Amino acid sequence: MRWFGFGFNAFAQVCVQEKSDKEDSSSSAGEVKVNVPIELKNHVGRSKIRASWSRRASLFLDEEKSVRLAGFCAFISNESFSPVMVDTRGCRDAIISETHLTLAFPDRIECWDLQSKEKVPSWSMEILTQSQNSDVNLPLVPGGYISSKTPIFHSLSSHLQAKSLALGGEHAILLTAAGAVYSWGQGSHGELGHGGLIPEEEPRTVEALWGMSMRSVAAGGWHSVCVGDGGDLYVWGWNESGQLGLPSRGLRKASQQKSEPQAGLSNGIESLIWLRYNGQ
């Protein structure tokens, strides 16, 4: 399996940039942004990648099953990642945020505070072997899910029968075994998909998708994505940088002014736009 990285790289969370002698040391454009996908070094065999804004965790599933970090506060040398300063041998899954690293072992869940020098996890939970489901990845855990912010553990109602869960910057998107989608958290940028901009403290069905079976969900900082059983892609939320697959508000406004100088563009929030792509 080969992994490639691209995008914001100011903390070397994507890859370590090697400067040449001829390169202007005052220019940091090559370090801050990786515009072309670059293959990640030393990722041989089966592995998983987990990322936050300034950090990357690489989970190696072969042999000892260990985790290594890159990015902010990682001890980076000439390699593209460094070992975590905790024992991760036997780890089967991991998620990382700006403040915490959560590790899943066959018998327990551990959450480590990346800003603390303590050599013990800030939170842990034992897992009964008989309740373990190898098909479910973090952040789901038996009886609830792991959040990227404290409080770390949140319980879920058993009637939801959660299949997978995605965490955004301030919201959560849940996919049930029946293919229904629920969301909750902050809704200030339309990331919840409920047609408004108010927060939801409890999981609420995304009614626009009701009756259509979904097979996967994902969440960005302020936008959400899901894929239907038929291969259709649905996206909603903030679109200031075109992350919904549409031109951003600024680009649309400039384009409309060129074609229709007299026509004004509404100041409506891009988060209310809903896309549907036919993947068949």
Rank of each mutant, 00 (worst) to 15 (best):
A166D: 06
V141Q: 04
A180D: 10
S124V: 00
L156I: 12
V206H: 11
L160N: 11
H154A: 08
L167A: 11
Q161T: 06
Q132H: 15
S124P: 01
S158A: 10
L128Y: 02
G169C: 08
H194L: 15
P199N: 00
E126P: 01
G168C: 03
P151M: 01
L128Q: 10
I173H: 01
W184T: 03
A178I: 01
R204M: 13
K163I: 04
V136W: 01
E202S: 14
L209Q: 14
Q186L: 06
H154M: 08
G190R: 05
S183K: 10
E170L: 07
M212E: 15
S131Y: 15
V206M: 15
G168T: 07
S213F: 09
G193P: 01
L128D: 11
V136R: 07
N137S: 13
W123I: 00
A166I: 08
Q186P: 00
P203R: 08
M214A: 14
W184H: 05
E170D: 07
G211E: 12
Y182L: 11
S155H: 11
L167Y: 10
S124L: 00
G143N: 06
G168K: 08
S148E: 13
A180I: 02
T205I: 15
I146H: 07
E191F: 00
I127M: 11
L156E: 03
Y145C: 12
M214W: 13
S183P: 08
S155P: 06
S183Y: 02
S155D: 09
V141L: 11
H189N: 08
A172I: 08
S155Y: 10
M212P: 03
L167N: 11
G187L: 02
S157G: 15
H194F: 05
G211H: 12
H159V: 11
L128N: 14
G196V: 05
G143D: 10
W184K: 02
S124H: 07
G211C: 12
L175G: 09
G169N: 09
E207I: 07
P203M: 09
T176Q: 08
S183T: 10
Q186C: 08
L197R: 05
I146S: 14
W184C: 13
F153L: 11
D135C: 07
E200N: 12
L197P: 00
S147P: 04
T150L: 04
G193S: 07
A172Y: 03
H159Y: 14
G168M: 06
G185E: 01
I127W: 03
W210Q: 15
L167S: 10
A180Y: 02
L140T: 08
G187W: 04
E191R: 02
V141H: 04
T129N: 02
A180K: 05
Q186A: 07
E202D: 13
S158E: 12
H194N: 12
E170T: 06
E126R: 05
A178R: 09
